[in-house]
Design a protein around this nucleic acid. Structure first.
Lengths: 179, 179
DNA sequence: CACTGTCGGTTCGTTCACTGAACCGATTCG
DNA sequence: CGAATCGGTTCAGTGAACGAACCGACAGTG
């Protein structure tokens, strides 16, 4: 969505949130960032998003303080986009959407989320089903489910086939090993 | 967002959810429906949405089983759009977005959500801060906050100035009493 | 009866955002 | 030297959103 003037008239915190993250692709970029994707090219191949749109979303999210642009190499200059605390705070919303997608939009058991401390499933309210405590995003482990494609053809999807703690950087295979 | 072919390639329940409710305006229509808005004209004046877009969203949401079109008057034929169980299941996602909007998108205390049974605030994980139990959407009361405009000029916003239990139909003033 | 207003839309021309392909500069690898 | 990687920008074409106008069926008023 391209909102601005339209949603701005709405006196509603949901509308305010959607002004920032409601545009097409934006929440999926944040999802990837929380999954540990940090580099332009990884977002690109994983999302299948037009380059111009990705550039725009990364810039906007950085301006909004949801991502942070960080130089990780000087020659040639390369930046990575790391999710900030403000961005990680979107996790409850993403988790709730994920749950709804599983139960009401025909997405089966593609991935599940577990409590890193005890291995318990994370229930409908974001708490651990085993120990009952609310689970902060950094303590969540994403576990691939049985209905996930076992041989995807982009390196990011392949890297996400292994269980992975959220927020930690994703390590993709070097390009020369690609399919 | 108009997704379909694009997000469909994504193996992710978040993407599946956004295929259904990720388009511009859609989540705000669902929010209003959960707030008790049911009639075409009430959505129209409250959202300030173009008529063609509203018609499209109501049709799509009805096809998806998120709203249900229900005849409430025969002459002239009038239908209302009532949120279904599947639609109400989006409440956790909307609540999480609302919370994020309050804390990270500059929306102050516009509205708060309380547990109808005990009056406790609903915390970050959708549970009641007082009694600790998860609160189903039907037991949530929306309470207007101090930063809300006290004299809005559309009847739906005025009706929402009073505390209101979610899902229950919103009663707007008759048109001839308008501003 | 004529007039006005309500309700729930549809139609249409304009504007705006997304799309996909091409291109680019700096650098590294073989 | 030539090819590939990385992180973009530019640009023409398309599709969606926007806003205003219009419309049919009916209710209420005088």
């Amino acid at each position: 969505m391209a909102l601005g003037k339209d949603y701005a008239t709405q006196e509603c915190s949901i509308a305010r949130a959607l002004e920032v993250v409601g545009e097409r692709w934006t929440l999926l970029v944040v999802r990837d960032a929380i999954y540990g994707v940090r580099r332009y090219n990884d977002f690109l191949v994983h999302l299948g998003i037009p380059r111009a749109v990705l550039s725009d979303r990364l810039r906007t999210l950085t301006e909004q303080g949801i991502l942070e642009k960080r130089r990780y190499q000087e020659a040639p200059p390369r930046d990575e986009y790391v999710v900030t605390e403000r961005g990680a705070a979107l996790w409850p919303a993403l988790r709730a959407l994920s749950q709804w997608g599983r139960e009401h939009a025909g997405a089966g058991r593609l991935r599940s989320f577990r409590h890193a401390d005890c291995g318990g499933d994370i229930g409908p309210y974001g708490t651990c089903a085993d120990c009952g405590t609310p689970v902060p995003v950094a303590d969540v482990v994403m576990v691939p489910g049985p209905e996930l494609d076992t041989a995807p053809n982009d390196p990011v999807s392949r890297a996400l086939l292994r269980p992975k703690r959220l927020l930690e950087p994703l390590e993709t295979e070097p390009a020369h090993l690609a399919h």
